[in-house]
Amino acid sequence: MRGSGNPRLSSTPAPTAGELGLLVAISTLADMGPVRASALLEGRSTAEAWEAILANSIRPEDPLRRCPGVNAELLTKWADQARGMDPAATLADHCEQGVRIMTPADSAWPQRLVGDPEPPMLLYARGIPDIAAGPCVAIVGTRRCTSYGRSVAAELGEGLARAGVGVVSGLASGIDATAQRAAFGAGGRVIGVVGSGLDRIYPRSSGDLWRRLGEGGLLLSECPLGTSPAAWRFPSRNRIVAALADVVVVVESASRGGSMYTVDSAVERGRPVMSVPGPIRSPASLGTNRLIAEGCAPVCDVGDVLAAVGMAVESGEAGGPESGAGSQRTPSGDPAAVLDAIGWESQSLAGLCLATGLDPGQVTTALIRLESEGLVCCDGGWWQRTG
């Protein structure tokens, strides 16, 4: 069941239609992020904030001027942009395009965002808002995932969905989208948080998932329609992913990258972080293995994650990265040499020939045999071990 309801009653006054239009207009200003919006509204009503932008009357001592990057040039740009804008028409356009605009006063505002250190000013939503209630786990990781990481992400997404746990992520290609597709396919509650306007699909490869969540899941953004993806928006988006989850699971990640922004946001919010162990020579597992070394709990199967959110799992029901391995045959001869040469890193045909001393025909025959047994796969000319 995708929806579960949120009975919380908010004590925050609901904005009038006019005020909501102004908030939407403010969020539309170029490079207006959550920190800048909060500083602009500090000590001002929504109408006063909008008037200050229109009049370009933000003084040097104003909290907004202390935000990095806010200078006279940007304030002039905002004033010019605001003067050509009709807030009421902007609000109406969102409504006509089926976008629900949520404020902290909305009954569907996610409970986990109440008291957040950096809450969004607004959330733009398509789908079923109340599915963010109930236990949720964020599954995140690298876009450049291996077949091992992709398999584990799908297994965790499906397992959590079948257990009634919502899956939160950012629809990025790789680990994020794989986990969310698997969870949605299992009938689960799936929440996607994106770093652009809801009408700006990014990446294009996630377009199918984007549309599905907009109908039977929940698609969220703090960006108004028309907002193009920008590099700074994705780390900002990741804080919402972390905030909406009870636990954050990192499947594969380099030592740096977007996943680690999510980890930092989770730690700031007191959310537990768990990590999937991987091959020590795999670049895609450098970050996850380091997290475990630093004290994060390892994830060996979906049962570990369910236990972390306070849910029990029957013995034998939890699958893991090694599930089904016992049914595979142990290769011998040339296939064994090739499999050993692949290890847990991606290898090219030329590299395997060099490592094994076999000629291309022998290596190719061995790879066909290994692939038929489900032990390796090829991705863009690079061979990876899957079992």
Results as ranks from 00 to 15, higher is better:
S221C: 03
P283D: 06
D130M: 05
L23V: 01
R237L: 08
G33W: 10
P335K: 00
G357P: 02
G149A: 05
D62F: 06
I101M: 05
A92F: 00
A88G: 10
D264W: 02
L156P: 04
R8M: 09
V276N: 12
T262E: 12
S206P: 11
R143M: 10
C145F: 03
A284I: 02
D80I: 01
G295P: 15
T364W: 04
W78A: 05
S285D: 06
T46G: 15
W344H: 15
P119T: 15
G217T: 00
I131V: 14
P13N: 13
L291Q: 08
V338W: 02
A312D: 15
G18C: 12
T330Y: 09
M274H: 11
A163S: 08
S206W: 06
D199P: 02
A133N: 15
T16E: 14
R329N: 12
V302I: 07
L352W: 01
T288Y: 06
L122I: 00
G216P: 04
Y202F: 02
G98R: 15
L209C: 05
A183I: 04
L9Y: 13
P321V: 10
V338M: 01
V247W: 02
D334Y: 08
V70G: 09
R100P: 07
L123D: 07
L213G: 13
R269Q: 15
S228D: 14
S151I: 00
R189A: 07
L123W: 08
N289H: 12
N238Q: 12
L171A: 09
A336K: 09
S315T: 08
L225S: 06
P63C: 12
G270N: 15
M311W: 06
G351Y: 02
G270P: 08
G216K: 03
A39I: 00
I131M: 14
E373G: 14
M85D: 07
R211G: 02
A108W: 03
T103R: 15
E268G: 10
N56V: 01
V193H: 06
L218F: 04
P298V: 05
P335D: 12
A308C: 10
A52C: 07
S236V: 04
G270F: 01
L40Y: 02
V70Y: 00
G98Y: 11
I368N: 15
D304R: 11
E51I: 01
V247H: 01
A153G: 10
A14V: 06
P298K: 13
G127A: 11
E373H: 14
G185D: 07
M85F: 01
A79I: 01
E314Y: 04
A39R: 08
E252V: 05
E51G: 11
G84F: 01
G303M: 06
G5E: 05
V137D: 05
C296W: 01
A125F: 02
D199Y: 00
G157I: 00
T288W: 00
A133W: 10
Y124I: 04
A242H: 08
G343Y: 00
S236L: 08
E345P: 07
G310R: 10
V251P: 04
W78S: 02
E322I: 03
A284S: 04
L358P: 12
S372A: 12
V194C: 12
L40Q: 07
D116F: 00
G188Q: 13
